[in-house]
Design a protein around this nucleic acid. Structure first.
Lengths: 244, 244
DNA sequence: TATGAAGATGATGTATACACGATAATTTCC
DNA sequence: GGAAATTATCGTGTATACATCATCTTCATA
């Protein structure tokens, strides 16, 4: 628990406001990364004064960043009691992954119908680049390219709202999707699943694309569920205050 | 344009902070209502000092409320240039309704599979209550019950995340869904569509429930699209500043 | 007269200060 | 000695003040 407190209290880079965007967005991005990578574990309290001191800014942009996190459901705000990193129960995890699987399937179905030949070619190219990272065992590279692969699928729907919705859910599950890439065998099987997906999309097979993408996400769910349960057995009770 | 400015500048109820929740949430709710009802038209600028004066509060909770609106995509924030009520092009409208239709269909499919007998009974009861409002021509009552009807469907999925996502998209399309209820004939046909949906759900017919719900939403899309186009013909150019 | 630059005006972005509420520690009473 | 109440401390909620940026006006110049 000590290093966690340090990660909150320790001073970070000055975070100049002269950057392209505002301070709050940078803060939000940083906190989001820390949540996804596990530096800020679920249930962790996010105190404004501490964060303000850590980043060398006032509470105002910190509040804004915390509100952004809350809006994307990565954190929960309890009135007069502070903001906490969202806590995942096995039920919530299942709900998140099922939603993600449904959305991915939906995107795949629409993408198989609507993608231009250029977009289909791009998807195929990404798929081949992913093969390289699998061969090298480069899990970081795989994660990056994998994100691009799925993004391409989403955008293939040619529906900006659907892209937004899907991305918002993906951000929510990101902290739990990530664990899969630590396993090399999962890297390979993930890529194998992609193969069928790409084939289905390239030939415009909407129902197969939908089904395979659903299964693709649900496979990750099973892994994450196991991981979460093993975590909760290790540290039994997480004491996040309930609402009122 | 004069009455619009007034609706922003005119002082409103004092908005005491002693209420159940914070000031920002109340502000957000009020502004959301004003957007949905059309008092604040798309493209309208939302200036913090004006709103602060109108509600008799400082800029801080106003900023928070505007950020909440921005998070739900009802408004757009342009750095250093202010917050504006989201502007809908026909393309965005179609994207929103298609997403909504897909999500409703998905919810209907899962609800048809998972609803308890009690939940199915509730849905049927709401359907019969809706019949009453149609008979009376009570469009306000219909709108309220209709919301409850669809909410029951969403919750029937037993997936909180999916409920959240669906509700968030519904809030986004709300300003454009609303116009349908001004037409009496639409009230009747909407209710007629519900009949088939309820039947499919009660007998657990997943694919028919999904398809009928998709069509049900897309019917509203057609109406809204016509309405939007007629609007844009009336007032040609809406001058919302572009990003940079 | 048209055009462009400089100043004025006002809004947004950020920082600081105060008020309220919650939690925790200490004291007091049983 | 233990439990309940009171006070102390700290964080959140709100208000206000200052800095920065955008826009509009105005005046000078071509």
């Amino acid at each position: 628990m000590i290093e966690l407190t340090q990660s909150l209290a320790m001073q970070s880079a000055p975070l100049e406001p002269s950057d392209g965007v505002g301070i709050a967005q940078q803060l939000c991005q940083t906190l989001e990364d820390d949540i996804v990578t596990g530096k800020l574990p679920p249930g962790q309290r996010l105190e404004e004064p501490l964060l303000a001191k850590r980043f060398g800014v006032s509470r105002t942009p910190v509040r804004e960043a915390l509100q952004l996190l809350t809006a994307s459901e990565l954190a929960e705000k309890i009135p007069n009691k502070g903001v906490y990193v969202s806590l995942a129960t096995p039920e919530r995890l299942t709900a998140m992954f099922e939603s993600m699987a449904e959305l991915e399937g939906m995107c795949g179905r629409l993408a198989a119908k609507r993608m231009t030949s250029g977009e289909r070619h791009n998807l195929d190219k990404l798929h081949h680049e992913l093969a390289e990272t699998v061969r090298l065992g480069d899990s970081d590279g795989y994660e990056t390219l994998n994100r691009a692969f799925h993004n391409t699928l989403y955008r293939g729907t040619h529906n900006d709202v659907l892209v937004d919705v899907t991305l918002s859910v993906r951000r929510r599950v990101a902290p739990f999707r990530r664990v899969q890439f630590t396993s090399m065998s999962r890297l390979a099987s993930s890529h194998a699943e992609h193969q069928g997906i790409v084939d289905a999309i390239l030939r415009g097979d909407v129902s197969v694309a939908e089904q395979l993408l659903y299964d693709h996400i649900m496979a990750v769910h099973d892994i994450s569920q196991d991981y979460l349960i093993s975590l909760r057995e290790a540290s039994p009770a997480n004491d996040m205050p309930a609402f009122k």
